Simulated scan of single mutants.
Amino acid sequence: MVGYQDFRMPEAVRFGVGALQTLPEEVKKFGAKKIGLISDKGLEAAGVIQMVAELLQPLSLPIITFTDIQGEPTFSLLEKTIKTIKDEGCDLVVGIGGGSAMDVAKTTAALLNKKDIEDYLSSKKTIEERGVPCILLPTTSGTGAEVTMNAIFGDEVQEVKRGLVSPALLPDLAIVDPALTISCPRRVTAASGVDAFTHAIESYVAVRSTPLTQIYAEKAMKLFPLYISRAVNHGKDLDARIGMSWVSHLAGVSLANAGVGAVHALAYPLGGKYHIEHGIANALLMPFVFEVTGTTCIDQMVDIAAFLRLGDYRQHPNDSLGAVVRYLYSLLSELDLPTSLKELGVEESSLPMLAAQAAKIDRLLSNTPYNLTERKILSIYQKAYNGMIN
């Protein structure tokens, strides 16, 4: 049992509609001479990058934009980003986008002044301190990357996804403006929204959870059912976007400090081998994983059922798990997300290999209140392949 645990967040968080407009005054505080603006192709095409650049124009600072991010990032893309921003002499990184863009931005800021980054990328060394200041602005409600100490990248050689973890990955400032999420497409809204819920529920039951982290996870889970369908089906509903921004942000804080577990461990190999989006993988696997792991945390399942307004199971606690699992599975159809691995093009013959890879992710499995063996992981994949829960 852990005797003590730190609780970390960015030095400052600014949340609210219109918060984006304060970016110039915040940039000015850092005394930067050149800004590295990191984002993705989608936001560039949507005109968001130009809008941000115009917002910063009164500062009369050169802005180097890097928007080569498409899909989920790889270590090779990260190295390319670091080289570009370093060669340009940027001394402030601004990351705007979903989890991919923010992961690239905050890792670039952390490693910018390091001479040899290979040991950091291989996790042989932990990043001690950030190289240059970093500001993050999320445009989706899902990853909570603006408040987390981890960043996920694809290893193209090993065909796996690996996470870098360090307090240096926390930004100096997180600006959460829910208005930035209004342009988020329907499927991305659904997948990222359920991803945020995955962070909340996994961190709530995590071995490393504390009463403090559970406060954040609980609030996120209570808000989720009130806003997810509205945000997905009525994307311009600003109130729903605000609600889901809170879900993502609060769940991110809980994730950052309590960690996540088996759902993420099983999702990573799917991303590495089949390039399935992280949020989609988490959403699909969640009911199948909790059908197994939830058996060892029934008290928390009673809590979660109440948070989700599924009923009061205090008199019949063992029934709470079934209610939660059915709810998680129903979300897939309700939000038009895939309901089986087969639907996603996963080959049944690859399941043993995926299980072997997932079984090695001890950082996450050890944080799960259930001893998942490779054989048990394989059985979860097999049920998820067919899309059948009990």
Rank of each mutant, 00 (worst) to 15 (best):
S330M: 13
L337T: 10
R309Y: 04
F307M: 10
V346S: 06
L308T: 04
L332S: 09
L310P: 03
S320Q: 02
L337E: 06
M301E: 01
T339G: 15
A305G: 11
S333F: 12
R326L: 09
D303A: 01
R326G: 02
V325D: 05
F307T: 05
D312K: 01
A306F: 02
G311M: 05
K342L: 14
V325W: 04
A323L: 09
D336C: 11
K342S: 15
Q315A: 13
R326P: 03
G345M: 13
D312I: 01
N318E: 14
H316N: 15
L308S: 05
A305D: 01
M301S: 00
L341P: 09
I304R: 00
L308M: 07
L308F: 07
D312A: 02
V302C: 03
T339H: 07
L331D: 09
I304N: 00
F307I: 06
V324C: 08
R309K: 15
A305Y: 02
S333C: 09
R314S: 06
D303M: 00
A305C: 09
L344P: 03
L332G: 09
S340R: 06
Y313P: 02
R326Q: 12
S330E: 14
G345T: 12
E334G: 09
E334I: 01
E343I: 08
H316M: 12
Q315R: 10
Q300I: 04
Q300P: 02
G322I: 06
G322K: 11
S340C: 09
E347P: 07
S330Q: 13
E343R: 11
L344Q: 08
L310I: 06
V324N: 03
G322S: 10
T339Q: 13
G311H: 04
R314N: 03
P317S: 06
D336E: 14
G345E: 11
R326M: 08
E334V: 04
V346F: 04
K342T: 11
E343A: 15
K342V: 10
E334R: 15
L344C: 10
Y313G: 02
L321W: 10
G345I: 12
M301K: 01
S320D: 03
Y329V: 08
T339V: 13
Q300F: 10
Q315D: 13
L328P: 10
R326A: 11
L328I: 09
R309M: 09
D303R: 00
D312F: 01
D303H: 03
V325R: 05
L310H: 06
